Computed example of a mutant assay.
Amino acid sequence: MDYNDLKQTYMRVFDSEDGEAVLDDLHRIVNQISIDGNSPNENAALYKVAQLALLRRIEKMCDGEAR
């Protein structure tokens, strides 16, 4: 599968009513936990960055523009 085919797949999935509900839930989950200097897990910031990167990937793939 090439990039444009994959992009079309993302768009089919996330531009649907169900896909939008899933994406909204992912945003909710990512944004409900804040990270500060007192976090007991030293990897919490890395985990948060990875979650945000995944959301950006989904949004980029759904933007409708071909590469």
Rank of each mutant, 00 (worst) to 15 (best):
E42T: 15
V49G: 04
L26I: 15
L6C: 08
R56D: 13
E20N: 13
E20D: 02
K7V: 05
L23G: 04
N4L: 05
L55S: 09
A50F: 14
E65R: 11
L52Y: 15
P40C: 02
K7E: 01
E65W: 00
N41K: 06
V30I: 15
M11Q: 14
R28S: 08
K60Y: 12
V30E: 15
L46F: 01
R57Q: 13
L52F: 05
E59F: 07
V22R: 07
K48G: 02
V13D: 01
I58S: 03
F14S: 11
D18Y: 12
L52I: 11
K60I: 08
Y3Q: 06
R28P: 00
A45W: 04
E20I: 05
Q32E: 15
K60D: 09
E17R: 12
I29F: 10
I33R: 08
D2E: 08
D5C: 01
S16D: 09
A21L: 11
D15L: 05
K60G: 09
R12N: 14
V30C: 15
R12V: 14
R56Y: 09
A44F: 07
G64L: 06
V22G: 00
R28K: 13
S39M: 01
G64P: 07
D2S: 14
C62I: 06
A45G: 08
Q32A: 07
L23K: 05
A44E: 14
I33T: 10
L6R: 13
E42G: 10
L23H: 04
A50D: 15
V13C: 07
L54D: 03
I33H: 10
R56G: 07
K48L: 12
K7F: 03
P40Y: 02
G37D: 13
R56C: 06
G37S: 12
H27F: 10
N41Q: 01
A66L: 15
L46R: 01
D36S: 14
V22F: 06
Q51T: 06
N31H: 09
A53N: 08
P40K: 02
A44D: 11
D24T: 07
I29K: 14
C62L: 08
L54P: 01
L54G: 08
L46V: 01
P40S: 11
I58C: 07
Q51L: 08
L23M: 02
I35W: 00
E42C: 05
E42L: 02
A21E: 14
N38Y: 11
C62E: 07
T9P: 03
E20H: 09
Q51M: 12
I35V: 09
G19L: 02
A45D: 11
A66N: 14
A66R: 11
R67Y: 09
L55M: 13
E59P: 01
L23C: 00
D5I: 01
I58D: 03
F14P: 06
N41D: 15
D25R: 15
Q8D: 12
G64D: 07
P40A: 07
K48A: 07
N4K: 13
T9L: 13
N38H: 09
I35K: 00
Q8L: 14
Y47G: 12
T9Y: 12
L26W: 01
M61W: 00
I33L: 05
D15A: 03
F14H: 00
Q51A: 07
N43V: 02
N4C: 02
